[in-house]
């Protein structure tokens, strides 16, 4: 019963929190750029407007894929709040991500096609890192289930510092921040127009946006798990992490996927492996 209540909280609070995070993000980004920026509630206005627009699609697969993306993302957040198996959460999240890509591949648009290919490469970069983070989690807690975490007395960050850094790569990619914002960018000025999102429009773009909020909450939730012993420090950790993300976003150019694959595989995987070896050796 408790689980059910948590799941409902997760599903309801996910987009609200996610939207607020997006709003704050825009506000802080504007501050970095010597601007005032929009009100914090701006993302909600954006999505509401999108939902009220005319439905235009290139083909019906897009409708299907936008919905499945949302459902996948929401389910993964629900599983997170249900403290389910981490790998399972990750795989369910991948359902949404894969459908987003497939919807983009379904249309005859070069921008969306190339964007989708790049999105797949991003998945290729962050998925192994995430799996290794979860394996680290298992080595510390003895289970892949989030529930097992609460039995731990010391925060995970103490045992998995390098894995947390590696998770940072995955986080940056997942949040579509510079330098990894090449499949689609929050800013319109990109060689692929809007990349994987080019052909999603109106209400369907709104759905994708809400799904993205869920994903934001999912990855931030994962970060939060690294300091489960104290809610205040957990909040500080998440806020700090997100601020660093915004800082990186604003001080880096957009890089190419060739650069990403090499860096994330070498650095991200390297950090993870070193940390894992240490955990195995312990």
């Amino acid at each position: 019963m408790d689980t059910l209540i948590l799941v409902i909280i997760g599903i309801v609070a996910g987009p609200v929190l996610g939207g607020l995070v997006a709003g704050l993000d825009r506000r802080v980004t504007a501050w970095f750029q010597s601007r005032q920026g929009p009100p914090v509630t701006q993302p909600f206005f954006d999505v509401a407007k999108l939902l009220g627009k005319e439905r235009t699609v290139v083909n019906q697969w897009q409708i299907l894929c936008a919905w499945v993306y949302l459902i996948g993302a929401a389910t993964s957040v629900a599983l997170l709040f249900a403290q389910a198996d981490l790998l399972l959460i990750f795989f369910v999240q991948a359902v949404g991500a894969v459908f987003l890509v497939m919807g983009a591949l379904a249309v005859k648009s070069p921008y969306s096609q190339v964007g989708a290919q790049r999105e797949l490469l991003q998945m290729l970069a962050y998925e192994p890192v995430l799996v290794l983070v979860f394996v680290g989690f298992y080595l510390v807690t003895g289970s892949f289930s989030l529930e097992a975490l609460w039995a731990q007395e010391t925060p995970l960050l103490a045992k998995m510092p390098l894995l947390y850094l590696a998770l940072g790569f995955a986080l940056t990619i997942k949040l579509r921040k510079s330098p990894f914002d090449f499949s689609t960018s929050h800013h319109g000025h990109q060689e692929l127009v809007k990349g994987v999102l080019t052909e999603y429009s109106g209400p369907y773009l709104g759905l994708v946006e809400i799904a993205h909020w869920y994903e934001t909450i999912l990855v931030l939730g994962l970060c939060a798990m690294f300091w489960h012993t104290n809610v205040a420090i957990m909040a500080v950790l998440v806020i700090l992490t997100y601020l660093v993300e915004i800082l990186v976003d604003n001080t880096m150019a957009r890089m190419t996927w060739r650069w990403m694959l090499k860096r994330v595989w070498l650095l991200g995987m390297g950090l993870s492996i070193v940390n894992l070896i240490w955990l195995y050796a312990r």
């Binding site: 504007a30 601007r35 920026g37 929009p38 009100p39 701006q42 954006d46 319109g188 000025h189 127009v193």
Partner: peptide
């Protein structure tokens, strides 16, 4: 700074 009013250039 027109983003104050929620205006974004989407292209």
């Amino acid at each position: 700074d027109v983003e104050r009013f929620g205006i974004i250039n989407v292209g």
